[in-house]
Design a binder for these strands. Structure first.
Length: 227
DNA sequence: CCGTGATCATTC
DNA sequence: GAATGATCACGG
């Protein structure tokens, strides 16, 4: 059954997450006394918030791990009928005000991806939201090979930003990790320091995302699903 | 206002 | 069909 308190160990967290396996969104929501929206069009992060409540996440929107004391990030992983992720995975926003944010070691990307609790959730559009079921959770850390691929993409993107070409970093760049706009709308802007002259300039807020091909590979390897 | 939770909608 | 760029809701 879902609980409200934060788990104190990896084992406790994983055990609790696995109680969600096979359960429907309607069941989990009912246990928490939450109504299920008809669809996600106006509730895009709803499933993620539902799972947070069920597993005892208290961190809110602070840029820290969901389970701060355990250093674990929680991510839902929406899968289609074949077990392939239907969406990219948000990793972290780019902090234009933090010089360390552009070094791999100091980056929020490395920290966020260091340990993730993946919770697969059915996302076949043919299945109504309330009837979709959760899968078996996986506590994951990147292998050295995966980290090398992530780091290579990150450093390519970070290098362009440091050189003053942030506007030329599109979502096409990066094999497993990409940088995309992330904001309420395209009109929202952030201040950044221009690499050339040090002047302040406005630019769109951006965030790092994992490509579907990367998480699809993860699913195939750990759940033996998909094609 | 901003960051986290993500998915949508248009274009390719 | 899949990917990119845009968008929606919420808490603090």
């Amino acid at each position: 059954m879902p609980r409200f308190s934060e788990p104190r160990s990896e084992e406790a967290l994983l055990a609790r997450a696995r109680t969600l396996a096979g359960r429907s969104i309607a069941e989990v929501a009912a246990a928490l006394g939450l109504p299920v929206p008809a669809d996600l069009r106006h509730h895009k992060g709803w499933v993620g918030h539902l799972v947070e409540k069920a597993l005892g996440v208290t961190a809110g929107s602070a840029p820290v791990p969901d389970f701060a004391s355990l250093g674990i990030e929680l991510k839902t992983l929406p899968l289609d009928a074949e077990g392939v992720p239907t969406e990219t995975t948000f990793v972290s926003s780019l902090d234009f005000g933090d010089p360390a944010a552009l070094s791999w070691e100091g980056s929020s990307v490395r920290k966020k991806l260091a340990r993730i609790l993946w919770l697969p959730v059915q996302a076949d559009p043919a299945v109504p939201l309330a009837e979709r079921r959760f899968g078996n959770a996986l506590l994951w850390s990147p292998t050295p090979e995966e980290e090398a691929r992530l780091r290579a993409d990150f450093e390519e993107i970070a290098g362009m930003i440091e050189a003053g070409f942030v506007e030329r970093v599109t979502a096409h760049r990066g094999k497993v990790l990409q940088l995309r706009p992330k904001g309420a709308n395209a009109r929202q802007l952030r201040w950044m320091v221009d690499a050339e002259d040090g002047a302040l300039a406005r630019t769109a807020p951006r965030a790092f995302y994992l490509r579907r091909s990367f998480t699809a590979e993860l699913v195939r390897r750990h759940w033996a699903l998909g094609g």
